[in-house]
Design a protein around this nucleic acid. Sequence first.
DNA 1: GAGCACTAGTTAAATTTTGAACGAATGCTA
DNA 2: TAGCATTCGTTCAAAATTTAACTAGTGCTC
Lengths: 162, 162
Amino acid sequence: MGMTESLDSTREAAWRAYIEASQRLYTQLEEDLRAESDLSFADYHVLVLLSEAPGQRLRMGELASRLIFSPSRLTYQISSMQRRGMVSKEPCPDDRRGSEAVLTAAGLLALREAAPHHLASVRTHLMDDLDDAEVACLTRVFGRIGDRLRASRAGSTTHATS
Amino acid sequence: MGMTESLDSTREAAWRAYIEASQRLYTQLEEDLRAESDLSFADYHVLVLLSEAPGQRLRMGELASRLIFSPSRLTYQISSMQRRGMVSKEPCPDDRRGSEAVLTAAGLLALREAAPHHLASVRTHLMDDLDDAEVACLTRVFGRIGDRLRASRAGSTTHATS
DNA sequence: GAGCACTAGTTAAATTTTGAACGAATGCTA
DNA sequence: TAGCATTCGTTCAAAATTTAACTAGTGCTC
């Protein structure tokens, strides 16, 4: 387990650059989105996931795990969107504990109106700066990290065997 | 300005991988930090910045802009840390409007105790997976994006001249 | 040096997020 | 099938965050 207590300096620089830029990027995208659409980043993301789902509906739990939201956060998020008419909620047919969030026509419209602006933001603030090799690098790196984190979380949920 | 309405598919994949992994990474690091130290990610970051600053003190505004926090969020953050004894607050000598956050001995100790664990998390969940070329790529990409966003925000703060 | 626009930071109210506890339904095991 | 651990999602209270005033101080312009 030989572990040093710190990051080597090139990795520390990478870490700091990543943290700062990610924070700025997120802030900027959220601001752009709100400026042109009444949607938060979370709203937008919910709309995307629902619009891509079969029947344009998803179980609360499934949605929460894709958004990486806590259950209660998702409950709040969905009721807020429901209040604004973008989604409705229906009881789940095969599991009476569950419910599903369903995209409404208004929700789909909101997504269609916001998407071009939002995607333009993503391009402007992030993607336009990247060459193909860099895009490939990001996909590879973050894909791998996401996989690992997804797996480790799935593993630790199930109670530990001695 | 010929702009398409969407991202090409490799960029879209990169974007999605990045967003998901970033969110998971942040969640995981925060959880690790709390599990082993009573500190939030924000607390930790404040401690790092103060510990590196000359006199181990920084103006509120300076700290806010480095953390990418709104002024009121920083006020809240610092009072919370003050309550817990990690920082103190002193009026700024040369500008009576201002104040500075000062690292306390307890704050420095908390940082020293948390750092090895936190850095181990960063390594485990992010850096250990990356080869040198990938580290270089991240540094370059996020450095550039951070610079651009910092610049564009600085520019838009000052009111627009027609 | 008075007036005025701007900056620093705080405060207050509303919104969002977390975390723990809960009620209801499921499904496994005996 | 009774019992019990687990899962699904919500609720409630507490903590964090945002947003919009607002106070105080600065510094420029005349």
